[in-house]
Write a protein that binds this DNA or RNA. Structure first.
Lengths: 332, 332
DNA sequence: CGTCGGGTGGCAATCGTTTGCCAGATGTTG
DNA sequence: CAACATCTGGCAAACGATTGCCACCCGACG
């Protein structure tokens, strides 16, 4: 075990066949006489042989590797995604490389460039690259985007639907003026939610005040909370659980009672949403499933060997998890 | 961009030199006339050339890839680790493959076997494999373990030290009988903490009751909390923040006031420790730094090209973060 | 003027695997 | 028995990059 890993040549020699035969015995069931195949497989097992990825990649073009590209590994939103892709890829026997672009467009492009030669495809979670680039890249490398359809393809989590559910929830609790603390300007999902909320507001005869663009982070919560309070709303939908966490902290610091004086709804149901006090009512997003589906979709297009940016569109439903941060509207 | 990625041959042809020259121009600075090198580099840039990982790996033996092997990606403990290794590897230009063994020894071994041919080394976070196997494997593949030294090498987080700090903290608050809700039997770190706590207890003239082996998960918290309450202790150290979260929930459910009737200290300071209410006093572990150091150590041994299981031992200090879950001892 | 030596750049082997093609063996059928 | 199909297994050519070795061109030095 100390020396070099055994190669196909070693296996072939040990079982008295040619390299080509050994190769086929291991990866082309039926092509070789079963008796011979067994001999080869036994030799391989005895030697502890594993097919070398680079050799295989070089000659077959398939690397057996898929990358997950995320803008920020520390964001708990991506934990679930990682787990999902991880599970799907492992089941399919693919290796999983993780790339953190740290929100940098350049890093994203650099990653794509190197993945082109070292991976069979990539799942792009919340890519920062422009649509045109994404389209262009997808003809060089099978790509599946998450939460940002490109060319009408990709996996999308229906947060707008969830946001509407949240709005209905608040409306039914008597809230008439509800704030939406929106996300980054670049977020496709955010703009979808805005339109969905506007429409739902009309239908529910409720007023929705849309508040500026906040970073989807805890630190941005203070500003968002202040703005929400200032807006005379009795309830607020946060773009994000992280943002909601920050808002909760701020409300506590300012002595605003949640849900007594202000109801707060988050989005995603990340780790921690039921830890915070009051436990956060939030739109639960099927993160793990999203990652899993994205990887499966990618694997399918890889197998299909389609050249273009084909792929499917898949929208995953969300649902509202009611906890303790929402309650009857307070008179203001 | 639609067609095959450009190869070194294309670059060489475009700049009118031989393949070997192109190769050297790109990766062997000084070996080639600067003028020629510039020409080659320009051609490479124009073509959007990136060196193919498989070709390089095959001929040079270096894959430019390092794996992080964790037993459970969803455990927030590993988020920080992932971030650390990710950062270190990216800085060094290495690709980062993530392997989740889901607590399975077989999966861990399978991973190692395939990594042997497809990675330059691996960081093993909390490996489940036995020491002998680890030693054996480390002669086949550069390995750095995290929180479990093998052959006296590895990166270790000084949680015993932190646990003692926590004990001192509680002692100074007047606690005289303190419980330790221990972790899995297989945890090396757990047994170290037990001895450290026993010694410190003598010194501090405090009684430590060690409670069974709990799974490091939230779900195990209820049992741990009940046992702690039953033990007549006024404060409890949890193996884990996750376990502490579960205990907090249980105490709340049973109407035990924290920290009024019971002080709780966690360990690791994972995401969420300051979210939970009361905010958790906990032993902060430098997770990200640990991951970073482990990766750096690994990279160093890879470069050193040492054959054996060499490597350094590095212990990272921890510190107690005092929040709201600890307070003066209650009379019982 | 002859020789040496440093600076450049090319040839070709090599890494491990896959796979198209072919040859021999064996079996089948008219 | 001939003609043919089917199985099996080997040969050798890729795949893309690196690198040891050699050849050539120069200027420099004795």
């Amino acid at each position: 075990m100390t020396d070099k890993p055994p190669t196909l040549r070693d296996v072939a020699a040990a079982s008295g066949v040619a390299i080509s035969t050994a190769s086929r015995a291991l990866s082309r069931p039926g092509r070789i006489n079963e008796e011979t195949a067994v001999r080869v497989r036994e030799a391989a097992a005895a030697l502890g042989y594993t097919v070398g990825a680079s050799g295989r990649a070089l000659s077959s073009g398939k690397t057996g590797t898929v990358a997950l590209v995320v803008p920020d590994v520390t964001n708990p939103f991506f934990f679930g995604i990682v787990r999902g892709t991880q599970a799907a890829l492992r089941a399919a026997g693919y290796a999983h490389v993780l790339v953190d672009t740290e929100e940098s467009v350049q890093a994203e492009e650099r990653a794509l460039r190197m993945l082109r030669t070292s991976a069979d495809g990539a799942v792009l979670a919340a890519p920062r690259l422009g649509d045109e680039w994404l389209v262009a890249w997808s003809s060089a490398l099978p790509l599946v985007t998450l939460n940002r359809p490109v060319n009408g393809a990709g996996v999308v989590i229906d947060t707008p639907g969830g946001a509407v559910q949240a709005l209905e929830h608040l409306a039914s609790l008597g809230h008439r003026r509800i704030a939406y603390a929106g996300g980054p300007r670049t977020s496709w999902s955010d703009s979808r939610r805005r339109t969905a909320l506007r429409a739902a507001a009309r239908r529910l005869r409720v007023e929705v005040v849309v508040l500026g663009h906040y970073a989807p982070q805890r630190e941005a919560g203070a500003a968002a909370a202040d703005a929400a309070w200032q807006s005379d709303a009795t309830g607020v939908l946060a773009f994000n659980d992280l943002l909601a966490f920050g808002m909760l902290e701020r409300f506590t610091a300012r002595g605003v009672d949640v849900p007594g004086q202000m109801s707060v709804v988050g989005c995603d149901d990340v780790f921690g949403a039921d830890l915070v006090r009051p436990a956060l009512t939030t739109v639960a997003a099927p993160l793990e499933r999203a990652g899993h589906r994205a990887a499966d979709l990618l694997l399918a297009t890889i197998d299909r060997r389609v050249p273009g940016p084909a792929g499917d569109y898949e929208e995953l439903p969300t649902h509202l998890v009611v906890r303790d941060s929402t309650g009857p509207a307070a008179p203001r």
